[in-house]
Write a protein that binds this DNA or RNA. Structure first.
Lengths: 186, 186
DNA sequence: GTCGTTTGCCAACAACTGTTGACTACACCG
DNA sequence: CGGTGTAGTCAACAGTTGTTGGCAAACGAC
């Protein structure tokens, strides 16, 4: 039960699926195209992943891998987070696949909610001046990071696509910082 | 040539198309479903709008209707802009249709770029400390506003969907303000 | 070697898609 | 009233989609 003979095929399917879902979105990425990329028969996709939704669920498994920021300079957290998001976004097209699908599919949208609430929430809870504001602050950070990713990687707004990574950090860092740590009263 | 007998039908098609495109996205909104909503035959859609892309192009005509801010308190522009965006999002689902389609279709994406560069750009040009930074600043504003709309209306992240309008203005206003007017050096 | 299981391919299905063309009914102009 | 163009209906097309079941080859245990 350690490694099946078909593991290579399964992995090839997942890799092709991620690429296609990221590039084309859920509906336009067809099982036939994914199977062709993986050089196997479309029916294998069904056998291993049940149906298209199951394939997407397997291909779009994702973890933000937020760094441990205990001990980090509290005032630098915003910039560190933005930098981490950009790296995460550019090194892996799973998030892109998830975003493209979440816009029209309820399943992926729910997963998106779970990722940002479940992984960003705890971090916000440690930084927020008031504990009960953590979900709100995590949501605000998500809105800026997802909006930037949307403009940069999906819509390809020229000025956003052209930004150097550290320029983006310099512009977005203070925003994220403020969303996480701004006192409630202000 | 003033009013054709078919103008009511044309309008019904456009209204149904906007709703369907906004709710389901470009691919999942079928011509048959739109025609059924408008209580006409699918072939009429083709006759009046040529094909599905033509229908979308007609249904997703959009103008941000940015207010004239000359004379407004410069420090209040951020909040005014956020308030205007929220009203525009909620009073009309064209932008929602455009966003859902732009994520997977090049045509709508291009229109989105044109809207935000062409309409937000001039406003940024009047407020930006340095003229050549206007596109960048307009893009940053777009990233925050589109990100918020994405989280609130599309993904329905609970803390974003639950915000009162003026709460959203209080949180996002300063961000937009900073993107428009922050000195370059900082 | 033999048998059961796994892996893969092939062909086909039913449903749905955008799109087309022919045909009917209505309205308006003379 | 007759004739012309517009509005609308109907049925069908060709292509694509997710999905299924059957069959052949390769493998591993005995």
């Amino acid at each position: 039960m350690t490694t099946r003979r078909s593991d290579a095929t399964r992995a090839a399917i997942l890799a092709a699926a991620r690429e296609r879902f990221a590039a084309d979105g859920f509906e336009r990425a067809t099982i036939r195209a994914i199977a062709a990329d993986a050089r196997i028969d479309p029916s294998m996709v069904m056998r291993y992943y049940g149906n298209k939704e199951g394939l997407f669920a397997a291909a779009a498994e994702f973890d933000l891998r937020l760094p441990d920021l205990t001990g980090a300079e509290p005032a630098a957290v915003g910039e560190m987070l933005v930098r981490h998001f950009l790296e995460r976004w550019e090194g892996d097209d799973t998030l892109l696949a998830l975003l493209r699908a979440a816009v029209t599919q309820e399943g992926p949208a729910e997963r998106m909610r779970a990722i940002f609430a479940g992984q960003l929430g705890p971090l916000a809870a440690r930084l927020s001046p008031e504990a009960d504001q953590a979900p709100l602050r995590a949501g605000l950070v998500a809105s800026q990071m997802l909006g930037f990713a949307l403009c940069r990687y999906v819509l390809r707004l020229p000025p956003m696509a052209a930004l150097e990574r550290e320029e983006a950090v310099a512009w977005l860092g203070p925003t994220v910082q403020r969303y996480l740590t701004r006192p409630d009263s202000l």
